[in-house]
């Protein structure tokens, strides 16, 4: 019988082979909405090193993603907007030269992740053409307009947050807490989802992330 449910975040990360030193980890959320905080805490407790973290923001305060970064486990951050109010931890690491930053336009970040999940190795976009963020990248003209080639992002692990889930891994989301979570679920070798509630079966008409994209789910409550 298929049952992707784990009893705790710690149990879900404990024997996950893709969670290892040097791994690339996608982390869902936008600001504080839709961030898989329990899974982040559980990963932090694994004490890994040399991680690449891909997330829209770089955490704020001293909890969640900021706390993970403060532990020194990440060598590299791929991100569109690391400078939100209260993102003190990341700024200190960056200014001390202790973390590398790849800054990516938000739509390019989303499309690189979507492409990774869809088996598309690269794509062309007009976003960023002629700007510092396109330096060194291949460009091409289509129908008189210039485009930049961007590579897909594939990760070892995705940590995502959802509203409800079932034993098959089908997921629904809450309002704008959806953000990066559905596309990140598609782009990792192992996807771990924390959900507020598990149900017997998510109504197939309202499934946003089909269970094929999800490997492990943990109920964490509100």
């Amino acid at each position: 019988m298929i049952d992707k449910r784990y009893t705790s975040a710690a149990a879900a990360v404990a024997d996950c082979e893709d969670l290892r030193d040097g791994a690339v980890i996608l982390i869902g959320g936008f600001g504080d909405a839709g961030v898989p905080e329990r899974l982040i805490d559980a990963v932090r407790e694994r004490g890994l090193s040399d991680l690449t973290i891909v997330s829209n923001n770089a955490g704020s305060g001293d909890y969640g993603l900021a706390r993970l970064l403060a532990s020194g486990c990440a060598a590299r951050m791929v991100c569109s907007f690391p400078r939100s109010s209260g993102s003190v931890v990341f700024e200190e690491l960056y200014e001390a030269g202790r973390i590398e930053l790849e800054i990516v336009p938000q739509g390019t970040l989303a499309e690189r992740i979507r492409a990774g999940g869809a088996g598309v190795p690269a794509f062309y976009t007009a976003t960023g053409y002629g700007t510092p963020l396109a330096e060194g990248k291949e460009t091409r003209e289509f129908d008189g307009r210039h485009y930049v080639m961007e590579r897909a992002i594939r990760a070892d692990v995705a940590l995502i947050h959802a509203a409800t889930g079932d034993r098959f891994g089908n997921l629904t989301y809450a309002k704008t807490a959806r953000n990066f979570n559905p596309i990140m679920a598609m782009a990792a070798r192992t996807t771990l989802a924390e959900v507020r509630t598990t149900v017997d079966m998510v109504d197939p008409e309202v499934v946003v992330t089909p269970g094929i994209f999800v490997d492990r789910i943990v109920e964490v409550g509100a």
Binding site: R83, Y94, L101, Q106, G107, T127, T131, L133
Partner: peptide, 20 residues
């Protein structure tokens, strides 16, 4: 999106919006 300086750069959706 950027005034330079030592703070980390941040772009968000600005480049997508002006291009799209």
């Amino acid at each position: 999106w950027s005034l330079g300086g030592s703070k980390p750069p941040a772009v968000g959706g600005a480049m997508d919006l002006v291009a799209g």
